[in-house]
């Protein structure tokens, strides 16, 4: 028996509540302490992950194709997409902000789609290695997901602020709504993922020690 594969609640014939940590016999359906629905592993978790993932990806396409901001000044009206806006910032010597915008609205969303797909696929093919790295990846995805909303807030702030009658005014483009939807969908996708599944196939196909052996 290896100490590196510790006893999990499922192997012990128990189920842990993910909300409050309390442990119950595995057939329990509702946590007696906090009322949460109990399930040792949620079999539909991955379906929900993929459904929200696809919705997020679909919304991310118009978010990049349509303009995010429409700026009207005395002489002209310009429309800027996410990438176009960042390029413009870089040309105005605001390289730092251009990089922030690019990281927040291109690098992070694309990385998030790839990371969630990778995690879900690794559970599908019952990966038995790199659980620590995959868990770290999941924590990063969960933490960073909300920050993509920054772009939508910037558009909201600019629209509220820059209303100088005929001189200059800024209006939101359709991409703002698509981008917000994309961020929300990917957050829901990451939240649907049952991270306990990352650890389930460690040690590969060899039979796991039975409870009686480990418990005595």
């Amino acid at each position: 028996m290896s100490e590196a594969t510790p006893l999990t609640a499922r192997e012990a014939g128990l189920v842990g509540c993910r909300r409050c940590g309390r442990v119950w016999p595995i057939e329990t359906e509702e946590c007696g302490r906090c009322g949460a629905h109990l399930q040792s592993r949620d079999p539909r978790s991955l379906s929900r992950v993929w459904a929200w993932w696809a919705a997020g990806l679909i919304a991310y396409v118009p978010a990049n194709l349509y303009p995010m901001l429409v700026t009207s000044t005395l002489v002209e009206e310009t429309q800027a997409t996410i990438v176009g806006g960042a390029v413009e910032l870089a040309q105005h010597d605001a390289l730092g902000v251009a990089i922030i915008v690019l990281v927040a609205s291109v690098l992070i969303p694309v990385g998030k789609f790839m990371a969630i797909a990778f995690l879900a696929l690794s559970v599908h093919r019952q990966a038995d290695t790199g659980a620590h790295a995959r868990h770290k990846l999941y924590e990063i995805v969960e933490y960073i997901g909300r920050w993509s909303m920054i772009d939508v807030f910037v558009v909201a702030i600019l629209t509220a602020l820059v209303q100088l009658n005929a001189l200059a005014s800024i209006h939101p483009g359709p991409a703002a709504a698509a981008f917000a939807a994309s961020v929300v969908f990917t957050m829901l996708s990451a939240q649907s993922f049952d991270s306990r599944m990352i650890w389930d196939h460690l040690g590969g196909p060899r039979p796991r020690p039975r409870l009686e052996e480990r418990a005595t």
Binding site: L14, R22, S40, S195
Partner: peptide
Amino acid sequence: PWGKMDISATQTDDLIACPNCDVL
């Protein structure tokens, strides 16, 4: 600390399961 423990299904109120990886 984890390690060997005797588990009876009726006595679970002094146990905690990790919400992320299910270790008991």
